[in-house]
Deep mutational scan, measured.
Amino acid sequence: YYKILGVDKNASEDEIKKAYRKRALMHHPDRHSGASAEVQKEEEKKFKEVGEAFTILSDPKKKTRYD
């Protein structure tokens, strides 16, 4: 999950949140509406992965379990 968000394992809550926003905007489906179906599908997959990574890393209990 750290790799997906592009943050270090010791990243602060704020750094995780900023990285999530950056990656979410980058891969958001609306940004790729004019792209081919294949690209849209890949970006949607990445967008979901970013969301999942943020869900785990932003919750202290889940993050501890993950680490």
Rank of each mutant, 00 (worst) to 15 (best):
R23Y: 03
A37V: 13
K17Q: 14
H27S: 08
E44Q: 12
H32N: 03
S33F: 11
E13C: 10
R65Y: 05
P60H: 09
F47C: 02
R31Y: 04
G51K: 15
L57A: 06
E44P: 06
K45N: 06
K22Q: 14
P29M: 04
I4D: 14
K62P: 04
Y1S: 03
E38G: 06
K62C: 08
G34N: 14
A11L: 06
S58F: 03
L25V: 10
K9C: 09
T55W: 05
A35F: 05
D14Q: 10
Y2E: 06
K61E: 15
E44V: 06
P60Y: 03
K9M: 13
D14S: 10
A11H: 01
K22M: 11
E38Q: 10
E13M: 14
S36M: 08
I16D: 03
D59T: 02
I56P: 10
V50K: 04
K41T: 03
K48I: 05
F47P: 09
N10Y: 07
T64L: 15
L5Q: 08
M26N: 03
R31E: 06
K46A: 11
M26D: 14
A11C: 03
N10R: 06
P29V: 02
A19G: 08
P29A: 07
G34R: 07
D14N: 07
Q40R: 13
K46S: 04
Y2F: 09
L57Q: 06
K45H: 04
D8Q: 09
L5I: 01
V39T: 13
D67C: 00
F47L: 14
S36T: 12
G34Q: 14
H32R: 03
R31Q: 10
R23S: 12
H28R: 06
K41Q: 11
A53N: 02
D67N: 01
K46W: 01
L25T: 13
A19M: 05
S12K: 11
K9H: 11
T64W: 13
K63T: 05
L5N: 01
Y1Q: 01
L25Q: 14
L57K: 07
L25S: 13
E13S: 12
K61F: 10
E52V: 05
R31S: 09
L25G: 12
P29C: 01
K3Y: 08
A37T: 11
A53P: 01
G34L: 10
K17C: 10
I4M: 07
E38F: 05
I56E: 12
H28C: 08
A19N: 05
T64R: 15
K62T: 14
K18H: 07
E43Q: 15
R23D: 04
K63N: 03
E15D: 13
S36H: 07
A11N: 01
Q40M: 02
K45V: 09
K61Q: 15
R23H: 14
Y2W: 01
N10P: 05
F54C: 08
K62Y: 06
Q40L: 11
G6Q: 07
A11V: 02
K17L: 13
A35P: 02
H32V: 08
D8P: 08
K17M: 14
R23T: 11
E52Q: 10
Y2V: 00
E15N: 00
S12P: 06
E52S: 03
Q40P: 05
Y20V: 07
K46R: 10
E13R: 11
N10A: 04
P29Q: 06
K18A: 15
Y66I: 10
G51M: 15
K22R: 13
D14E: 14
P60G: 10
I56T: 14
A53Y: 00
V39K: 13
D8N: 12
A11T: 04
L25K: 15
S12R: 05
G51D: 11
Y1V: 10
S58D: 04
R31F: 06
D67G: 06
P60M: 07
R65V: 15
E44L: 12
A19P: 02
I56N: 12
E15F: 00
V50N: 06
V39D: 02
D59L: 01
G6M: 02
K45W: 00
R65M: 15
V39F: 08
K63I: 05
A11W: 00
L5W: 01
F47R: 04
K63H: 14
I56Y: 09
I16R: 04
N10C: 09
V7L: 12
K17H: 12
F47H: 12
K3R: 10
V50E: 06
H27I: 00
K46V: 02
K63D: 06
H28K: 06
D59E: 02
K48F: 05
K3D: 15
P60T: 07
G51N: 15
A53T: 02
Y2S: 07
E38T: 12
Y20N: 00
K22H: 12
K63S: 08
P29D: 07
V7S: 02
F54S: 11
S12Q: 09
A24W: 12
K9G: 07
L5S: 09
Y1C: 00
G51H: 15
L5V: 06
R23A: 14
A24T: 11
I4P: 08
S36F: 02
S12N: 09
K9D: 12
V50G: 03
A35S: 11
Q40C: 06
G6L: 00
E52M: 09
F54Q: 07
V50C: 11
P60F: 07
K48V: 10
S33T: 13
D59Q: 00
I4N: 07
Q40S: 07
D30R: 09
A19K: 02
K62F: 06
D67I: 00
Y2T: 05
K17A: 13
K63Q: 05
A37G: 10
R31T: 09
A35L: 06
G34P: 05
P60L: 11
E13V: 15
H32A: 05
A37M: 09
T55F: 01
N10H: 13
E15T: 07
E52A: 07
H27W: 04
K3V: 01
Y1F: 00
A35N: 07
L57M: 02
H32E: 07
A11S: 10
E43M: 09
L25M: 14
E42R: 12
S12Y: 02
E38M: 03
E44T: 08
G51F: 14
S12M: 02
I4H: 08
Y66S: 11
Y1I: 02
K61N: 14
V39E: 09
E43H: 15
H27F: 03
E49S: 09
K48R: 13
E44Y: 05
K46E: 00
G51C: 13
H28S: 07
E44S: 12
S33M: 11
K22G: 08
K61G: 09
E15I: 05
Y1W: 02
I16N: 04
H27A: 01
Y20E: 13
M26H: 04
K61W: 09
K48L: 09
S12G: 05
H27N: 04
D59W: 00
S58W: 00
D67L: 01
L25H: 10
R65C: 15
D8G: 08
R21E: 15
Y20M: 08
E43I: 03
S33K: 13
L25W: 14
E52K: 14
V50T: 05
V39I: 09
K9T: 14
K48C: 12
V50W: 00
I4E: 11
E43D: 01
